[in-house]
Design a binder for these strands. Structure first.
Lengths: 340, 340
DNA sequence: GCCCATCGTCGAACCGGTTCGCCAATCGCG
DNA sequence: CGCGATTGGCGAACCGGTTCGACGATGGGC
């Protein structure tokens, strides 16, 4: 494999001159620059990433930590990953991926050994045990998901409170007076999936303000349990005319469940989910939903991270906590309630 | 950040001694080893990955090329990625991920700049344009998917021919005499998705041998087109009693399509798919299927790749082409055909 | 015709590890 | 007791880049 020394020899210049000719960081005569460039082509030279990283302490790699926990719905996570990966590439960075269940190990390895210039954490929990490690690391970090303590990192998330209000308001405006909210399983909440109760609390409060009733429930996040639970839920609340689904697995299972009971949305039941348009297409979900914008969140996180890596953000420019406003994508699954 | 020089100074030894004490590649007295280890702990020392890569020409990183093409079903790809990622980590390697549509660029970048010790290519096409680049690279490569030319790489794939036969035989044995096979969209075939016609040809041949009729068709790989096409297909072949689905998107859409037409498997129609058990659970698919074993294939590819990287495979040990035998997972969606 | 800038290039040092060759001290053994 | 082998440690070189300081050759200004 050709090194810059080989390039220099073929071009008849010193190694440093070859380096400057390629980087343009010092003035180099046109003739020499041409000779160097020809040598590069002739030898098929590509700089050695490790050597460059050693010399510049820049790796042009971003670490991506995505945990595939049993109680998370994998296809939903994938879209965040793709948002991050695509954006990173556009900005000239590669992605070092960890899917380890214990993200702390991966994080330590990546940061301590300086394999990466920055870190993106997906699916961040209320008290995420990766955060202390990330804060102690010399590299900057960007999160998708809102933790209790945002110091030292840039944070991006959907505005789940607003999403909860939006769901309730939308159905209230159509005339619904009794709703059921299906959230992620309770142990996601216990593990610190704050977004679950952020949406839930806001929905409960909105229902209270409007004077309508809302039954907040949890459901499993895997098949086939979730289908059974959804059925039980519909049995338990026969008066409810609207269903709010903040649980991707439940949303994916819903068509089958409704069909089996002979129900149609919105004729028998109005339904609003919280998932991305891409997700809706993949699972053929015909329900209106709050767009969760995973690609956009991934993109924002990487953009800000790179700004910080490259020092365009001032060294003590304060960190950012930015919420994406939820938007309701109408797929025609809501209407005025059936006459009860 | 602490370097090995710092460790050496604190331990009162030379840098080389510190290195040997940690690697164990030369005999070091117990006393010195302890002093070095204490220094490591005290300073929180972790070796710099770039420096080590430079010195050893080993990065302990594997490049993973996964293209998310529009006409592929993303959640299916994810399982291969996780199989690769998990296995790599078990063996001490990290994953450099590329999701670029143009895999050739990513491949060149990773191999030429020596960011990785080896490469895993997913979803390999018949005449995959990444292969020439991979062969020219100094790093070994492992593929998931069977190309026309397997020289210079290790190849792993499901035995799609066997899968096609298995599907047909299974339904034939139950008494079916007219079947429909739904494959991936035709442009997947044109792009070189050889597995599509490998399964299809074998199924056609098996049907011919058994003397039963089989209608081989293509269907879109995205919603909502695929649902419409499935409907048209069932209209076109009202006599068919068995449906073979070699198309993840079609399988995912099938429950809705059948429900809409008031059909039930296996009472009205026997169904056999080709997807993983994980996929079946995620999409609540109640159909028997040929297990596509993405995790296993990813695992095999990484295992063999690492063997080659670490030179346990002899330098001119011949390359491997290994097929996973398809197994039918019975989910009760097949039975004797309804009386026609 | 002289002086000072500027331009273009080179040599050397450095980033942080690993590894080879060498040597002093210790050990075993006859 | 002397000798060869072994053990444990050190110094230096190397991996392949980048970057700083120095320096000779021009060129412009007066």
């Amino acid at each position: 494999m050709a090194t810059i020394g080989d390039v220099a020899r073929v071009a008849g210049v010193s190694r440093s001159t070859a380096s400057y000719a390629l980087s343009g960081k010092r003035a180099i005569s046109a003739a020499v620059r041409r000779r160097v460039e020809d040598a590069v082509r002739e030898l098929g030279y590509t700089p050695n990433a490790g050597a460059r990283a050693l010399a510049t302490s820049q790796t042009m790699v971003i670490g991506l930590l995505a945990q595939f926990l049993e109680d998370e719905f994998a296809p939903a996570m994938l879209q965040y990953m793709l948002g991050v990966s695509d954006t990173a590439r556009e900005l000239g960075y590669d992605i070092l991926l960890s899917t380890e269940a214990d993200g702390r190990n991966a994080l330590r390895r990546m940061t301590d050994s300086r394999m990466v210039d920055g870190i993106v954490l997906l699916n961040v929990a209320e008290h995420d045990d990766r955060l202390p490690i990330l804060r102690a690391a010399p590299q900057p970090g960007a999160l998708v998901g809102l933790p209790a303590d945002c110091t030292g990192v840039d944070v991006f998330d959907l505005d789940f409170e607003d999403a909860g209000r939006l769901m309730v308001d939308h159905l209230h405006r159509l005339g619904h007076r009794e709703l059921v909210l299906v959230s992620q399983p309770e142990h996601v909440v216990e593990r610190g999936g704050a977004y679950v109760w952020r949406l839930q609390n806001a929905a409960i409060e909105a229902a209270r303000v409007r004077g309508i009733s809302l039954h907040a429930t949890f459901a499993s996040s895997s098949q086939p349990d979730v289908a059974r639970e959804l059925g039980a839920l519909l049995d338990a609340h026969p008066q409810a005319t609207g269903l709010l689904v903040n649980n991707e697995a439940a949303a994916a299972a819903l068509p089958t469940v409704l069909h089996a009971r002979g129900l149609t949305a919105p004729a028998d039941l109005s339904v609003v989910g919280r998932y991305s348009d891409e997700f809706a297409r993949t699972f053929s979900l015909p329900y209106s939903s709050i767009e969760s914008a995973p690609d956009r969140l991934g993109r924002m996180a990487v953009r800000e991270l790179v700004r910080r890596i490259e020092g365009q953000a001032g060294p003590d420019e304060p960190h950012v906590v930015r919420f994406v406003s939820p938007e309701l994508v109408d797929r025609g699954s809501t209407a005025a309630p059936r006459e009860g």
